[in-house]
Simulated assay, not measured.
Amino acid sequence: MTGGGRSGRVVVLGITAQYPMAGVTWQAMHYLAGLRALGCDVFYVEDSGAPPYDPASGGVAIDPSPNVAYLATVMRRLDLAERWAYWDAQRDVWHGLDAPQVRALYGSADAIFNLCGATRLRPEHRQGARLCYVETDPIYEQMRVANGDADSIAFLAEHDLLFTYGELLGTPSCTVPVERFTWIPTRPPVALDEWAPRDPGTAYRTIATWENKGKNVEFRGETYQWTKHLNFLRMIDVPRQARTRVELAMDPLDAGVRADLETHGWTLVDPRPISADVDAYRGFVEGARGELTVAKDIYVRPRSGWFSDRSVCFLAAGRPVVTQETGFSERVPSGRGLLAFATVEEAAAALRTVEGDYASHARAAREIAAEYFAAERVLGAMLDAAGIG
Rank of each mutant, 00 (worst) to 15 (best):
V312K: 03
L192S: 10
P185M: 11
I184E: 11
A50I: 11
G128S: 05
S152I: 02
V176Q: 00
R130M: 06
E179I: 14
A347M: 15
L268A: 11
L351W: 13
R366P: 09
A33W: 07
V190N: 06
P172R: 06
N147G: 05
R240G: 09
D160T: 13
L80D: 13
W266L: 07
L292R: 07
A255S: 12
Y224I: 00
P185F: 14
I298Q: 01
I112F: 06
A242R: 14
R272T: 03
A191P: 01
G318P: 07
E46L: 06
R6N: 12
H30A: 09
A364S: 15
H159W: 03
R282C: 06
F314H: 15
A381L: 01
G59Q: 12
T223C: 04
H361D: 08
F328H: 02
R377C: 07
D384R: 03
I368F: 06
Y44V: 12
T186A: 11
R336C: 09
A208N: 10
A369V: 10
Y86I: 11
A349L: 09
E167L: 13
G34S: 06
G256Q: 01
A129S: 10
G148V: 05
E367R: 14
R198C: 13
R122G: 03
G96L: 05
R240E: 08
D237M: 06
L383D: 08
A196E: 14
P138A: 08
I298H: 00
E158C: 09
E345D: 15
D47S: 13
C132G: 05
C174D: 04
Q27R: 11
S360A: 15
F219S: 04
A365M: 08
L131Y: 01
L121R: 08
V257H: 04
T16C: 06
V294T: 15
M29S: 10
G380M: 10
A17Q: 08
M250W: 11
